[in-house]
Nucleic acid binder design. Structure first.
Length: 197
DNA sequence: GTCGAGATTATCT
DNA sequence: GATAATCTCGACC
């Protein structure tokens, strides 16, 4: 199902709704297992922090569209825009599990040795699905990229990094959400480097 | 399995 | 010219 009204909320509320959702592009379908909320203009880490630009124009548009961007020259990341038009807000898709089109995904991600690696990471997710800058701005209800929200709320946990409680006032964007126990989630760098002897 | 450094291009100041 | 929401590879335990 796809209900745009569900997406017209703050990204921190939309993020958990996207967990378990199915994202389909062509022959490949991915079940989202990890996402991260971005609050546009309020988030210093967001591309929209300094105001509207070419790249982030989609984030200011209607909810339920795909926002793609290029980073480090080699990687593409995908976001789902949320909040009503005029508000820059989006949810970054960080990881997922390939549930259909495995063969296609494997070909695209030749460097991945296991299926769990196919869409483990924002840029990898896009490669596995075949998402490019060309797909930016498409409507997720009718475009080449389709979003299918889960019928029931998914169980999820958030990542307030190593139990940051105070939030003293430095990092204001620890809004990471993922499905606990999923092998395709967050195997990448830890937020807190472990100290070696 | 885990840590550390480098690569590479679109976009904005 | 500076910046960026990352990935891959090599070294070590």
């Amino acid at each position: 199902m796809f209900d745009r009204e569900l997406l017209e909320r703050p990204s921190t509320e939309v993020a958990p709704l996207l967990l378990g959702a199915l994202l389909t592009v062509g022959d490949v379908t991915v079940r989202l297992t990890e996402v991260e909320a971005y609050l546009g203009e309020l988030d210093p880490g967001s591309h929209a922090f300094r105001g509207p630009g070419r790249r982030n124009a989609v984030m200011y548009g209607e909810a339920g569209h795909l926002y793609t961007y290029f980073t480090y020259g080699m990687h593409v990341c995908a976001n789902v825009t949320c909040s009503p038009a005029g508000v820059a807000s989006a949810v970054l898709l960080r990881a997922g599990e390939v549930v259909a089109g495995l063969e296609t995904a494997r070909m695209r991600r030749a460097t991945s040795k296991t299926d769990a690696d196919l869409a483990r990471g924002p840029a990898r997710l896009c490669v596995a699905l075949g998402i490019t800058l060309d797909d930016g701005g498409v409507d997720l209800a009718t475009g080449r990229v389709r979003l299918d929200l889960p019928a029931h709320a998914q169980e999820f946990v958030t990542g307030p990094r190593t139990g940051v409680s105070g939030a003293g006032g430095s990092d204001i964007y620890p809004w990471r959400f993922w499905i606990p126990g999923d092998p395709t989630v967050s195997p990448y760098k830890r937020s807190v480097p472990k100290k070696r002897n």
